[in-house]
């Protein structure tokens, strides 16, 4: 069953899969090196909305991961692409640290709302501003809808709950650009010349990483690090192709069973 497709690409989540905040998952750097020796393309796909590509890259390099900037595809990039396509001026509910990826986008007199993970902006006054724009017809663009994420001090609310609240307030649906959207995964694979059936996704989020990838036609591997909580693998149907302890184990599985 494992040999039914020739694997051409591996998509890898960052936060919670390769590292947790500023600590690498043990053995992850070496596992990535092993994967790179095989005949597969590697891409890093992330819903981390607080950080621009440059910051992500700097952290990964600091943690001794062998990664290049062009290999990173983030939901911020996907959001920027959509703003340019729609020619709208966004109210940006993203943290200052993410603004670099929106450099050059016009933001005066906003007629759209972009919402990422922005605890500093998720206060009552700012959400009211966003709400009033949306009820007057501005599109709501969500970088992703993750329910929560893992911090050193425990689980913390992601942007998803606030997006859901704004959707309810205005009876509209957000345009989601990050994982688990199909368009996100397809866009990530676009320059790899690879169909979803020839790719596998590794991540710690059952719905957004594994479920999203599998809905696109890829295989999904769930790792029990980061935000993983016992029983997460039962939250999606079909279940993950594989659930394993960590990224190094996922790589071993790929090398042994998915690459002939």
């Amino acid at each position: 069953m494992a040999s039914r497709r020739a694997l051409k690409a591996v998509l890898i989540d960052l936060s919670g899969t390769l590292h947790i905040e500023d600590v690498a998952v043990p053995g992850a750097q070496e596992a990535l090196a092993r994967l790179r020796c095989a005949q597969v393309a590697v891409k890093f796909v992330t819903n981390t909305t607080k950080e621009c590509k440059r910051t992500l890259l700097e952290r990964l390099q600091r943690l001794s991961f062998d990664i290049e900037e062009r290999e990173i595809f983030t939901s911020l990039t996907a959001a920027r692409n959509l703003l340019e396509h729609k020619e709208v001026r966004p109210l940006l509910l993203v943290e200052d640290s993410a603004l670099e990826d929106f450099a050059g986008i016009e933001t005066s007199e906003p007629n759209a709302v972009v919402i990422g993970l922005a605890p500093d902006h998720f206060n009552y006054e700012m959400l009211n501003r966003a709400f009033r724009l949306i009820i007057d017809g501005a599109p709501l663009i969500a970088i992703h809808k993750a329910r929560y994420y893992k911090r050193k001090d425990g689980l913390a609310l992601g942007p998803g709950p606030f997006v859901t609240g704004l959707e309810y307030s205005t009876d509209t649906k957000a345009i989601v650009v990050g994982k688990p959207e199909k368009t996100f995964f397809l866009e990530a694979l676009r320059d790899l010349n690879c169909s979803p059936e020839e790719a596998v996704m590794i991540g710690d989020d059952a719905r957004d990483d594994v479920g999203g990838a599998q809905n696109t036609g890829m295989l999904g591997i769930l790792v029990k690090t980061g935000k993983y909580r016992a029983g997460d693998e039962d939250k999606i149907n079909p279940p993950p192709h594989l659930t394993c302890e960590n990224f190094p184990e996922a790589v071993s599985h790929i090398l042994q069973h998915l690459i002939s």
């Binding site: 959400l127 709400f131 709950p161 859901t164 309810y168």
Partner: peptide
């Protein structure tokens, strides 16, 4: 001074967060 978000919005947020 205008429309304001009501409790239902935050109820929905917590419902979504905690399933």
């Amino acid at each position: 001074d205008g429309l304001k978000l009501d409790v239902g919005v935050y109820m929905k947020a917590l419902e979504y967060a905690c399933d």
